[in-house]
Amino acid sequence: MDWTLFLIFLAACGGSAATGAMFQPGQWYDALAKPSWNPPNWVFPVTWTVLYLCIANAGARVAQEDGNAYAMGFFAVQIAFNTLWTPVFFGLHRMKAAMVVIICLWLAVAATTIAFWQLNLIAGILFIPYLVWVSIAAALNFEVWRLNRHTPIVT
């Protein structure tokens, strides 16, 4: 493992994670109707910490592989959509727009997972929990939007 590369990718993940610190769920989210399977609030930072460590590890592994151009391109797209979702959902309170963002995120994570898998098996495996979590998050985004679609947008 090239620790410098790992730290570079971890910094990219940190930039994305910073949006979670800047745009926290707060009272607006607490007041929304949520499905019965909504995870408790403490699950989100714990899960994202583990995922960001896996994402950075996977990125550092693939960055060293020959023929990694598309994989790195997909990585850039997924981290961009990852960074965008939180301000759209929690900052702007645009649940429907956030659904579009998370669909793009899911597609980018799926493409990154496949590209990583082809170049480095461990990197591909490290992205699977991320794909699972984004799938759960997309379902949660949809359900929260569906349950609250008539709620006025408060910014």
Rank of each mutant, 00 (worst) to 15 (best):
V144I: 14
W85P: 04
A108P: 03
A56E: 02
Q64W: 09
F142V: 04
T113M: 13
I114Q: 09
N38S: 08
M99C: 11
A108Q: 08
I128Q: 12
V46H: 03
L119T: 05
M22W: 15
L147N: 06
W117A: 12
F23G: 01
T83Q: 07
F44Q: 03
W48I: 00
R94H: 13
G67D: 10
Y70D: 15
I55T: 09
A63D: 08
G26R: 02
L53R: 03
P35Y: 09
Q78L: 11
F127W: 13
I128R: 08
L147E: 09
F127L: 15
Y29C: 07
Q64T: 12
I55M: 14
A21S: 14
A80G: 13
C104G: 12
L131S: 01
D30N: 13
P39R: 04
R61V: 05
N148K: 00
R94D: 14
V132N: 02
Y70R: 15
G26S: 09
A76L: 14
N68Q: 14
L126I: 07
I128E: 08
M72K: 06
I103D: 05
A97Q: 11
Q64C: 07
A137H: 03
T113R: 08
L51Q: 00
R61S: 10
I102Y: 04
L119W: 05
S135I: 01
V109L: 05
N82F: 04
I125M: 12
H93L: 02
Q24F: 06
L121R: 12
L53C: 13
Y130T: 00
N57E: 15
A33L: 09
A21W: 14
A21L: 15
G91T: 03
M99G: 15
V100E: 05
I128M: 15
F74H: 09
I125G: 09
M95V: 04
S36V: 13
Y130G: 00
F127Y: 12
N82A: 09
F81H: 02
M95Q: 12
F90K: 03
I122F: 12
L107T: 05
W85C: 08
A33V: 04
V46I: 14
E65W: 03
A138L: 13
A108W: 07
P129G: 01
R61W: 07
L84Y: 04
W117N: 12
W106T: 08
V100R: 01
P40G: 07
A123D: 06
R149N: 11
A110H: 01
L107K: 02
L121Y: 10
I114V: 15
P39F: 07
L119P: 02
I128C: 13
I128D: 06
A123N: 05
Q24S: 14
M95A: 14
W42F: 15
T47Q: 05
Y29I: 00
S36Q: 13
T49G: 10
F127C: 14
I136W: 05
A80F: 13
I122G: 10
I136L: 11
T86W: 06
Q118E: 14
E65M: 15
Q27F: 09
T47H: 02
N120M: 10
L51T: 00
